[in-house]
Design a protein around this nucleic acid. Sequence first.
DNA 1: AATACACTCAACCGCCTGCAT
DNA 2: TATGCAGGCGGTTGAGTGTAT
Length: 297
Amino acid sequence: MGRTPCCDKANVKRGPWSPEEDAKLKHYIQKHGTGGNWISLPQKAGLKRCGKSCRLRWLNYLRPDIKHGDFSEDEDRIIYHLFTTIGSRWSVIATQLPGRTDNDIKNYWNTKLKKKLIGTNNVSSQNTTPHGLLSHFLQISSTNSSSSSSSSPSSYSDHSNFPSFPNPNGTFSTLLDTISFSSTLLNPTNLISTNNNTSQDQTFIVNPNQVQNNYDVKSNHGLLVFGRDQASCSSSDAEYGSGGGIGVEDEKKRMSFVKQFHDHEMWMEASPLMDYGLEEIKQLITSSSCSNVFLDG
DNA sequence: AATACACTCAACCGCCTGCAT
DNA sequence: TATGCAGGCGGTTGAGTGTAT
């Protein structure tokens, strides 16, 4: 049954890699490749390391296409966007940043980016979870909407009313940009929490897994949903294997969720990134009676 | 100059899933 | 079908380095 053990953990070296070990590993992989078997690689390469350690060293440090150095403003923005929608799925985020590893991005987020965010937009240090961040920005949206226009949610037609993510240079990208960008990776199982008691002037994100049991679509006219009947399946999902994608039961719940919004004419059959530009979306929101927007990729 | 504290990031740990046996 | 390893993941740790006092 099963396979042979990976390595004798008592007889492998641990801790920081020496330049000699790096050279051995790099030379071996460049000459022979990984061979699809990390466990046997250290022995073949003449290293007293665990295969897992070799894999990590190669992927996070020695690979020739690794990008070292500071993150750019664009990279910052992408990380913000993805973290607020898919959470701490660093490997998925890394697929959107060529040359960056999941470990790099994770470290960067934990040590720098999160602090940068806390220092702006009044985000509290307790609020940097994906849910917390997105809720925070949506709350800003709600506040701006009600304060700048007491009678109508059409204040959304003013682009400046969308909540913003800070950029290092002081400019801002809008939440609308953010959601449009993120919708290609959105998956119903990742969506944020439900607020069942939503009134017109509240903003919220719906989790379709909860919708079926206790969410009354009809009484929540403040929501406009963009999306497609069929759930998307991103390349990241495929790469992520069973960790991504959407299961049969999840899809059933999602379709129930979609149907409810169809029934109440709150569903816009489109993928905003593909079918609508920002101006068109703004017009749709303005002409509808909805004050909140949800995009389902 | 010495010490304490803060920060960074490479590496490890434990868990989960898929696949070989 | 059951079992257990390999690969891959996110969370955490701690040594090394930088900065403040």
